[in-house]
């Protein structure tokens, strides 16, 4: 049961939230949509699996790397730009909570907590971005060198 509540439910929630976003971004192909949602779910499970390390930044980094790898594979499978999977996949990690708490501490006038939340939100955003760009840079180096040969 612990596995269900700890990993399966978050997976489903993340995937369903991503499904809403697929419609928002006008993604009409059902198969691509499902793949993109699964990507979002996988990202969150990876995030949870990395929880023992105790570093939010590291968790986000690993989750972003896994989404990026997943998107590059799916982009080749479906012959579509990898951005499609990437954008939907990183959604569960986007620090909406961070922005909210930053704002809340700001209006409460709680400066130390405000700065702490602000810096950690920026750190999370940076970690996602670095994770994604790491993979896409490596993929681009590999593919451009293939073209040359």
């Amino acid at each position: 049961m612990a596995v269900v509540t700890e990993y399966v439910l978050p997976f489903i929630y993340a995937a369903m939230a991503c499904a809403g976003f697929c419609v928002m971004y006008n993604l009409h192909d059902l198969k691509i949509g499902i793949a993109a949602c699964v990507g979002g779910g996988i990202a969150w499970v990876v995030y949870l699996l990395c929880a023992p390390t105790g570093s939010v930044i590291f968790q986000n980094l690993m989750a972003a790397v896994s989404v990026a790898v997943f998107s590059e594979i799916m982009a080749r499978v479906f012959k579509t730009p990898s951005t499609v999977f990437l954008i939907v996949g990183i959604l569960p990690m986007v620090p909406g909570g961070g922005i909210y708490y930053t704002m809340e501490y700001c209006i409460q006038g709680n400066m130390p907590m405000f700065l702490e939340k602000l810096v950690s939100t920026l750190g999370v955003a940076g970690a996602i971005a670095v994770g994604v760009s790491l993979v896409s840079s490596v993929v681009r180096i590999i593919t451009t060198n293939k073209f040359k040969n």
Binding site: V94, G96, S133, S137
Partner: peptide, 21 residues
């Protein structure tokens, strides 16, 4: 938090870093 997730520019954040890099 649930509701502002639809407004937060997550797409922007990733595309920015990809563009810069």
């Amino acid at each position: 938090i649930g509701a502002i997730m639809t407004l937060v520019p997550g797409v922007g954040i990733t595309n920015i870093m990809r563009d810069i890099i």
